[in-house]
Design a binder for these strands. Sequence first.
DNA 1: AAAACCTGTTTGACATATCAAACATCTACA
DNA 2: TGTAGATGTTTGATATGTCAAACAGGTTTT
Lengths: 153, 153
Amino acid sequence: MTDTWKEFEANEVTHSVAHHLVAIHEVGREYGGWARVSDIARWLGITRGSVSINLRNIKTRGLVIEDEHRQVKLSEEGLKIAQAIMAKKAAVKAFLRDVINVPEEQAEIDSCKVEHLISHSTGENLLRFITFLTSDNPAAREALSQFRKFEDR
Amino acid sequence: MTDTWKEFEANEVTHSVAHHLVAIHEVGREYGGWARVSDIARWLGITRGSVSINLRNIKTRGLVIEDEHRQVKLSEEGLKIAQAIMAKKAAVKAFLRDVINVPEEQAEIDSCKVEHLISHSTGENLLRFITFLTSDNPAAREALSQFRKFEDR
DNA sequence: AAAACCTGTTTGACATATCAAACATCTACA
DNA sequence: TGTAGATGTTTGATATGTCAAACAGGTTTT
Ligand SMILES: [Mn+2]
Ligand SMILES: [Mn+2]
Ligand SMILES: [Mn+2]
Ligand SMILES: [Mn+2]
């Protein structure tokens, strides 16, 4: 009815772009942030051709910079986006695995699917919640323990 | 490194298909489940042309059936998928809004983005968790109340 | 009956994302 | 030094999803 669902389209980055950014961050880790097309492609499990084309778009949007050897590095904005995505993924995964007992592998898959889609503020609320719930607050510990029992009903 | 992230691609349905199925379900509610292209298009806020093309795909996959007046209705499989998506959305939204205090509108947007992506089992775990946490279990109530305080730190 | 409106489909365009294959260029190594 | 391998780009294909515009039928209004 409302067009709220079309907000889905209105994402900062697509899943593909999100993973390109994170890949550059990871691959470039030992090289001052600089990454090569080939290494990004290998990391992502897609062809060099695809990475080359995708980077065209990502460069245009100012999310990476390029040096004279055609290596790429996250721009300030690209880095901010990559870090936000990694943080949200970590929060979601921790919640799924440590709070509601989703198996590790499934938590990995589900958090991967969702990492770039949840809003910043939701990510923050979630992080606050797991921080509280996995703290040594007695009420939190008791609730979690009761939930474990509740689950095995 | 691993190709886990490509599992993203391996979804039962895309966001677009998910909303087409749910739209058919909603639009057809008062007509024995039968829906027309025009009404689906209006509901989704896209053109009739787009719906027409998308339905071609959705029919091929056996998710809807068509009658002699070109009306469509969810097949048994299509209905199962639509219901699973609606259930997951409700669970996510309730968690965001009622547990971690995400504002209604944001909870709506985030749950919409994610509804078709989270796995069945994760959805079930989440539902168990919110059922417990919003029950009258004293430990649950105390934890939630402590979390409210913790938030306003 | 005619005109206006509503419906569903098709076409051509565009955007994103992927592949394989061909190419040009570098690099390494024998 | 010459060949083999690695690298990056481009092209042509496929798939999904969207739009606007044109078209063909059907229904309603006048
Ligand atoms: Mn240099
Ligand atoms: Mn991911
Ligand atoms: Mn009939
Ligand atoms: Mn949605």
